[in-house]
Amino acid sequence: MTTPPPTVLLVGATGSIGRLVAAEAVRRGFAVRALVRDPARARTLPGGVEVVVGDLTLPATVTDAVASVDAIVFTHGSTTREQDVRDIDYAGVANILDALGDRRVRIALMTAVGTTRPGVPYAAWKRRGEALVRASGNDYTIVRPGWFDYNDAGQRRIVMLQGDLHQSGTPADGVIARDEIARVLVDSLSSPDAVRKTFELSAETGEEQRDLDPVFASLAADADGSLEGALDAPAPAADEEPERFREDLTRIEGLR
């Protein structure tokens, strides 16, 4: 009997990165399912992608999307307004994890370079979304890309850094092509060396590596039981965090 290919759910599939992730995942032999709010936008996706209609912000509508999946790639994103990031980016992660319940899948979560910048409200909600993924008990990779498409044509060598130390809020923090972000997210799903790794992603002058496993392997894994990325500055104490996050965290930890 032929083993069916792994099924990967794309959250944010119709966005500029999500469409590239869909194409790369199809090319790599995954069965691809896309969660979309507007079916008309799914026309831009590659042939063969299964489309499931649902609203990421409405938990009851995403149950069908997560059914029987083996992996999830999050590339959704809204704006840099705190309310949008809280109610869409962060809530989307929480709602998908809730829908999964105690089932274990492989997760790749895209956030952004500078996620740990102090005093930046929207970034704090991205960091809290990362924390929920770490707390969920799933194997995961958290990718914090630099600035999309600010790279020169010759900047194709993929670089992964940790500690989120570049926080100018400008392309000086790192640049990367969109297709390379998609490639890293998809590669991480099948790489044991990418498990429990959190890193900032950029590119430097040089050719793109054929094999990213050695690059993943060079990174420190997030500590067992930690809500923070390896080498990140300490997060605020729990009693300093919003009640919404504390409640979500308690609930998701209870699903493990």
Rank of each mutant, 00 (worst) to 15 (best):
R127V: 04
R128N: 10
D139C: 06
I158M: 08
A177C: 08
R134S: 00
Y150C: 14
R144D: 04
E130D: 13
G146M: 06
S168R: 11
R178W: 03
A172E: 12
I142G: 04
G146D: 08
G174I: 00
V159I: 11
I158V: 14
W125S: 02
Y140F: 15
I181S: 01
G129S: 11
E180C: 07
S136M: 09
H166D: 15
P145F: 05
V133L: 02
K126D: 01
G146Q: 06
I158A: 05
V143Q: 03
A153L: 15
D149N: 13
R157Q: 14
R157K: 12
D164E: 09
A153T: 14
Q167G: 03
V133S: 00
L161N: 11
V175I: 11
G129T: 08
W125A: 04
V159S: 09
L161G: 12
A153E: 15
R156L: 13
W125K: 05
D139H: 11
L165H: 12
R128M: 10
D179A: 14
V175Q: 15
T141L: 07
D149P: 01
R127H: 07
I142A: 05
A153D: 14
Q167T: 14
R178M: 07
A177D: 13
L165A: 12
I142T: 03
V133C: 05
A172I: 11
D152A: 15
D173N: 08
M160K: 09
Q162C: 02
R134M: 07
A172S: 12
Q155T: 06
A177E: 12
T141F: 10
S168N: 09
A177R: 14
R144K: 12
A135R: 07
Y140P: 07
I181D: 00
F148P: 09
D164N: 09
K126G: 06
R178D: 00
A131E: 15
V159C: 10
G146T: 10
R144H: 13
V159P: 09
E180Y: 13
I158T: 15
G169M: 09
T141E: 06
G137T: 01
D149M: 05
F148S: 09
V143T: 01
G163S: 11
Y140S: 06
Y140G: 05
R134V: 00
G169F: 04
D149L: 04
V133H: 00
R134N: 01
G154E: 11
T141C: 12
